[in-house]
């Protein structure tokens, strides 16, 4: 489960410093909300889709589109009716279906949505989660928060297997029926979820013992062993990312 969002690789997208990557992710997302011309937004989105190939491999690169297809269709159907001004492009009897402003707006939304989806996709496919946490630490995330994230990823597989085993146990004692829908399904789940919650809540004191037993809470300052490498590589990559960031924002000055 932890590995499911990371795609191992040695491409430039993978080896680019994660701190620079996170910085670019934020700049890119912001840029997609700036009032750029549609052509520029479309190019940005296309670039991100291209980057998905080295980041995730050919087979996986289109998976976000597949997941988002219903929403993309919704945007295409539901955006144009809100725009009635401008040159009319398509009509049905007397009904205006598409105007040029509606078309542009739809394309802007599509590019923005696809671009942002892909920038997150590329980032998490090409950056292992422990590096993400270290990056956030570097940007000032408190150590306790980083610890919570790490431990959550440690517990997710446990809670998942508890859920599966509990529902098996309840199936066999007749207190859980699967395959129902709606309200009865939720009611049928109550015994299972109750057992799951008791099991997990019960484990809190024991795991707290373990954490305290590993010296968490001492007044002495913790050292940190795992660190992202600094030095010249970091400097070049950060410089490089600032240049890219400026280039991403630059069109705003060209338009006005």
């Amino acid at each position: 489960m932890i590995e499911s969002s990371y795609h191992p690789g040695k491409t430039f997208v993978h080896t680019f410093d994660p701190r620079a990557k996170l910085f670019l992710l934020i700049v890119y997302t912001t840029a997609m909300f700036l009032p750029f011309q549609i052509e520029i937004l479309a190019v940005y989105a296309a670039v991100m889709i291209i980057l998905a190939f080295p980041a995730a491999g050919i087979r996986d690169a289109f998976s976000p589109l597949k997941v988002l297809l219903p929403l993309i269709i919704l945007i295409i159907i539901l955006t144009p009716p809100f725009f009635r001004e401008g040159e009319v492009l398509i009509t049905y009897n007397t009904w205006i279906i598409l105007t040029d402003s509606g078309l542009i707006r739809t394309c802007v939304l599509l590019s923005r949505f696809i671009g942002i989806t892909y920038v997150f996709f590329v980032f998490f496919r090409a950056t292992p989660l422990n590096q993400v946490v270290l990056t956030l630490r570097w940007y000032g995330l408190p150590i306790k928060a980083a610890l919570i994230i790490s431990m959550t990823f440690r517990f997710i597989p446990n809670v998942t297997s508890t859920y599966h085993r509990v529902s098996d146990a309840h199936k066999l004692r007749g207190s859980f029926q699967s395959g129902m829908w709606g309200w009865s399904r939720l009611k049928g789940l109550v015994p299972v979820l109750t057992s799951v919650l008791i099991q997990t809540v019960k484990s809190i004191p024991v795991m707290s013992m373990s954490l305290e037993h590993r010296g968490f809470g001492r007044t002495i300052r913790r050292t940190s062993y795992q660190r992202l490498r600094g030095g010249r590589k970091l400097f070049t990559h950060l410089t490089f990312s600032i240049i890219i960031a400026l280039m991403l924002i630059a069109p705003i000055f060209l338009v006005r």
């Binding site: 306790k144 610890l147 919570i148 431990m151 959550t152 440690r154 517990f155 809670v159 997990t200 809540v201 484990s203 809190i204 004191p205 795991m207 707290s208 013992m209 954490l211 305290e212 968490f216 809470g217």
Partner: peptide
């Protein structure tokens, strides 16, 4: 207790 807080949040 701090350990308890952190663990309960994580779980």
């Amino acid at each position: 207790s701090p350990a308890y807080r952190i663990v309960s949040i994580s779980i």
